[in-house]
């Protein structure tokens, strides 16, 4: 249990670093780190297959996409971000209020589900659920991937001027 708690704190710290760091490339790595910690958490929550996907795709592939995009669009306005970091506390203080409110709620343990937990009817093996029970979703995945391929073909092609 203590390990879970430490992992949750690590997840939040990684996310906080992602949000607060001034350099864009570090932000992208912070996201990868967040995903990696999240993958360990998923593994500890009895979801090994999802953890593998999270680790390989979200911690592996998505940062590559981000780093590619960043390197292709380099020379961003870094300094503007640092200047704004000071004034944005004034602008978005209410988010801090939300955090405090969440803390108050949590201290009262109001976040527990107030319904009796359902009796599980599904098999717990993800392979059976995916391949034997949700064929429509698989079709949807095929369609999304095809759409993504068209997106790459259309959007990444250089426009001739």
């Amino acid at each position: 249990m203590a390990i879970n708690f430490i992992l949750v704190v690590a997840l939040l710290l990684a996310a906080l670093w992602t949000v607060m760091t001034a350099r864009l490339i570090r932000s992208a790595f912070g996201l990868a780190l967040t995903s990696a910690v999240l993958a360990i958490l998923l593994f500890r929550l009895d979801s090994p297959m999802a953890a593998v996907f999270e680790l390989s795709v979200c911690a592996g592939l998505i940062p590559v996409i981000f780093v590619t995009t960043i390197s292709l669009t380099h020379r961003l306005s870094q300094d503007a971000f640092q200047i704004r970091q000071k004034e944005r506390w004034g602008k978005y203080w209410y988010l801090l209020v939300i955090v405090v409110l969440v803390g108050v709620l949590l201290s009262r343990r109001a976040l527990l589900p107030d319904v009796p937990l359902p009796v599980v009817t599904h098999p717990t093996d993800v392979r059976i659920v995916m391949w034997n029970m949700h064929h429509v979703d698989l079709l949807g995945q095929v369609a999304v991937i095809l759409a993504g391929v068209f997106g790459v073909v259309i959007l990444f092609k250089e426009v001739k001027k």
Partner: peptide, 24 residues
């Protein structure tokens, strides 16, 4: 709820869609 089969299937689908959206 002990329903990890279903939720893992959901998350795997979610990750596939997430990647496609990020690429676009």
């Amino acid at each position: 709820t002990g329903n990890t089969g279903l939720t893992q299937a959901l998350v795997i689908t979610l990750i596939v869609i997430e990647v496609v959206i990020m690429v676009v």
